[in-house]
């Protein structure tokens, strides 16, 4: 492991904590998700700092940031962009939508119409956009952080299971700890801190880190364990069976987590660590459940499955 990269990861977490108080684990998980090349879904009540969270990450990672607020009337074209006829050059010109950024915050995803949701999710999966028959590649790295409100209301559109599956992880930020919360309500300085943040990781070093993560060793024993997890999820009625894609995501995320833990091999502990986040949105057969219930389910699956 490159000492330089190692250092920058530590700096990343430390810097981020200046803005987001007391959320080290969540930061690490989000960072892990980013490094694994997946997309993150945050489900939480308004006002816990979802947007700040996303902005901090974007700033520290030196990524171009855009925020899309999903509403009923948001159309796919608002998201992807339009071709406009330029009369002076008598040519069509692409006005790119907000999706053409490296870091996208899709706010209140479940308030958008299914059509718009699908447009985003397609872009997430294929990392490219098709506009009027023209295929345009999305920038790299491309990371979507979507948020959604936990309470299902009339007028919201739940994402179907197949589309939820495209998010690698689902997490909540949660209320801050008492000590931090006092700090938070007393001083309103985190916005200033956010402005003062400087990029810690360059796209080159991110690439380098991703390559290093690729070389993390995954033993047969571990793969067997992951398979047992998948199998058990399919065998029991309380769970919705996990797809092979979920299995692939588990291994990817576990590798990244092992890297963050400064190990060159993956342990079942890594899998157990990231599992509640990776499968929270895939394991529950009932959509009306809260994320805590989902994560409890994930833990039940862990407790049920033999490690060795």
């Amino acid at each position: 492991m490159d000492a330089n990269n190692n250092h920058s990861i530590t700096t990343f977490i430390n810097q981020a904590q200046k803005v987001i108080l007391g959320k080290e684990k969540e930061l690490k998980i989000a960072f892990c998700c980013f490094l694994s090349g997946g997309h993150l879904l945050i489900e939480d009540v308004p006002g816990v700092g979802k947007t700040t969270f996303a902005k901090t990450l974007a700033k520290l990672l030196d990524l171009s940031f855009s925020r899309i607020q999903f509403t009923n009337d948001l159309m796919p074209s608002d998201l992807l962009g339009v071709q406009i006829f330029n009369s002076t050059e008598s040519k069509f010109k692409l006005i790119p939508g907000p999706i053409f950024h490296q870091f996208i915050l899709a706010d209140e995803l479940n308030r958008g119409t299914p059509k718009t949701q699908s447009a985003l999710l397609e872009a997430m999966e294929e990392k490219q956009v098709t506009l009027d028959g023209q295929t345009i590649k999305l920038p790299f790295p491309f990371f979507v952080l979507a948020t959604q409100n936990p309470r299902s209301q009339i007028g919201t559109h739940h994402l179907p299971e197949s589309q939820l599956d495209r998010f690698m992880m689902k997490m909540k930020i949660g209320y801050p700890d008492a000590a931090f919360e006092i700090n938070l309500i007393a001083r309103d300085e985190h916005l200033e801190n956010l402005l003062q943040l400087t990029a810690v990781l360059s796209p080159e070093s991110i690439n380098q880190i991703k390559n290093e993560i690729e070389s993390i060793k995954v033993s047969d024993e571990l793969l067997k364990y992951v398979r047992r997890l998948l199998e058990n999820s399919r065998l029991h009625e309380n769970f919705l069976g996990l797809s092979p894609r979920a299995g692939r995501d588990i291994v990817k995320a576990a590798k990244t987590w092992a890297y963050l833990e400064k190990r060159t091999y993956v342990l079942p502990d890594d899998v157990q660590m990231i599992l509640p986040f990776v499968i929270a949105h895939r394991i529950s057969p009932f959509q009306s459940q809260t994320i805590e219930q989902d994560q409890d389910l994930a833990r039940a699956l862990v407790n049920l499955t033999h490690v060795d």
């Binding site: 299902s152 009339i154 739940h158 179907p160 299971e161 057969p285 959509q287």
Partner: peptide
């Protein structure tokens, strides 16, 4: 409450 998933 209305929904349209298989689980619903």
């Amino acid at each position: 409450t209305p929904a349209k998933t298989t689980n619903h």
